[in-house]
Simulated scan of single mutants.
Amino acid sequence: MLLRNLISRAGPDVVQTGRSLARWTEAPHGVRVHLEDRTTGEQQDDLHGELLVACDGINSVARAKLYPDEGSAVWGGTMMWRGVTDAARFLTGRSMAMAGTSAKKFVCYPMQDHGDGRMRINWIADLALPPDTDWDRQDWTREGRLSDFAPEFADWQFDWLNIPWMIQNAERIWEYPMVDRDPLPQWSFGRVTLLGDAAHAMYPIGSNGASQAILDARVLTRELMRHGRVPEALTAYEADRREAVNALILANRGDGPDKVLDEVAARAPDGFDAIEDVISDRELAEVAAEYKALAGFDVDALNARGPLIGM
């Protein structure tokens, strides 16, 4: 849907695959982007535009050229395995479940209701691993092995959720190290800026990988409408977003709102029958509200910023 709408607005050539950024050259009134074939490295046709917005992910080529001494992403010691499974509907059918602690955690939520009592469920299993683990083998398409993590969750079966069954019956499983990058002192350089993970890759807590990129795009759009397609728009966008998102990178290293799992485990090491006996609804709401405010998810605050149209 996104691709179709983009093409309808910007034309059929707006998306070009199989290319990568080689370098760019800034001119007084624009940027010339030099591309190369992603497989062969052969030089491709240059592109010219007024601004270059690099949103090329945690392994951003543009970021590496702006910060050549930064090196690889920072691993926090946790490996994640992700999968999708068609399984029985649980709780409300719209619930997100988190079980465990920061050292061993399982998260799942529904993506689609099949209408027959079964749902398409996305899940993530986290394990803290020894410091000498070979985490840097990730190419973002690495298939996971059940033997590496499934035994740790073998007895995680509840009357409302069968985690071992869900893991064993996944369509496919993918392995990802939990990595981020240190906060940057600057995103925008003349007519070039960073956006999304290229600017602020963080641990995938609170769905912030995608959410913060969306907020970036919203603010960048607003500033382009205010200032035009000029460097001042990029500077204003960064001034609005960078410090707030840098704080979120550091907060996610402290496990963000998921820290309640460790708090509950500390208060009830032998388990519990009802979560309300361990931590109150008020405490949970306070943790959630604090994180929503930090992440920019507070509904009233978002609505108060007003629409983009007409700015």
Rank of each mutant, 00 (worst) to 15 (best):
D148H: 13
E223T: 12
M166L: 06
M202S: 11
L129N: 06
R222H: 02
G254H: 08
D159F: 09
P164W: 04
A239E: 11
I167G: 11
T235W: 09
D182I: 09
R142K: 13
M178H: 02
L195C: 15
S147V: 11
R145W: 01
V192W: 15
E243I: 01
A201I: 04
E238H: 07
G254N: 07
P204Y: 07
W165Y: 02
Q157H: 11
D148G: 08
F189C: 03
I163P: 05
E243Y: 04
A125S: 14
N169A: 00
P183N: 11
W160T: 07
A125E: 03
A239I: 00
L248V: 12
L184F: 00
H200A: 11
M202A: 07
T221M: 07
E243P: 05
D159E: 12
E143F: 15
V179P: 00
E232P: 10
A199W: 00
A244Y: 09
D139F: 08
E223Y: 02
V179Q: 10
R242C: 02
P164V: 07
A217R: 06
R242G: 11
L250A: 15
Y237W: 03
D216F: 00
W123D: 12
W140P: 08
V245K: 04
R229N: 15
W160S: 05
R137C: 13
R226Q: 12
W123G: 14
G196Y: 00
V219S: 14
H227Q: 11
L224P: 12
I124P: 03
Y203T: 00
A233V: 01
A236Q: 08
V230K: 11
Y237V: 07
P183H: 11
A125I: 05
